[in-house]
């Protein structure tokens, strides 16, 4: 499984259904399939953090990162989201791909920290950037670091890189940016006046947790 080619993974992830009506409050948008494929492939090929691992996806939304992880050989993947509609789409997607090595759990981010302390090998997530609710990105990160035994991968806006790194330093964990990406977000929300919005995004890796 783990030797699936990048092109093939990208092709498959194109089939993942996105949100019907994304909720601005929750900063819902789907990680673009080409980017999801690219980062998952890098996480597996450079760090071997997916194949045979137990993975958590926080704010899983339509589940593209969970699905890609399972396709790359994850032994089990837990998808967490606060939103019932998002989880329904995620469930439909997982069923469509005939995957079974997963569980979905509806909960608030604050629920996770104590309950799942160090239960996962790897956390992979595309958290809200905190555009709508200030500080939510750091809250996700803190919880992810608590839940993972080994490493956390998380997407953040490039213009918050210094801030994220300083947080990691203050928590005394190792942090590196392993990819610089551009999100070409299509016209998802009404307040996006341009046809698409190009955002610079970093893939961070946190380790030595």
């Amino acid at each position: 499984m783990a030797c699936m080619k990048l092109k093939k993974l990208e092709q498959i992830l194109q089939e993942v259904d996105s949100f019907d009506t994304p909720k601005i409050k929750l900063e819902q948008y789907m990680t673009p399939p080409n980017i999801a494929a690219c980062i998952l492939f890098a996480i597996q090929s450079s760090f071997d953090d997916i194949d045979n691992k137990i993975i958590a996806d926080l704010g899983c939304g339509s589940g593209i990162l969970s699905i890609g992880s399972i396709l790359l050989g994850a032994a089990f993947c837990s998808g967490f989201d606060i939103d019932h509609d998002a989880l329904n789409i995620c469930l439909k997607n997982l069923k469509q791909f005939q995957l079974s090595s997963y569980d979905l759990i509806q909960c608030d981010i604050s629920y996770l920290s104590d309950t799942f302390y160090k239960r996962y090998d790897t956390v992979i997530m595309n958290p809200p950037f905190g555009t709508n609710k200030k500080g939510i990105d750091i809250e996700f990160l803190k919880v992810a670091i608590n839940m993972s035994k080994h490493s956390v991968y998380s997407l953040h806006k490039t213009n918050t890189r210094e801030y994220i790194s300083s947080k990691a330093r203050s928590w005394r964990i190792k942090n590196e940016v392993i990819a610089e990406l551009r999100f070409d977000l299509p016209h998802t929300y009404k307040f996006h006046t341009k046809k698409s919005v190009d955002i610079a995004v970093d893939l961070h890796r946190f380790s030595q947790l």
Partner: peptide, 8 residues
């Protein structure tokens, strides 16, 4: 549908 709802 297999999804526990832990929202409080």
């Amino acid at each position: 549908e297999g999804i526990p709802n832990m929202l409080v």
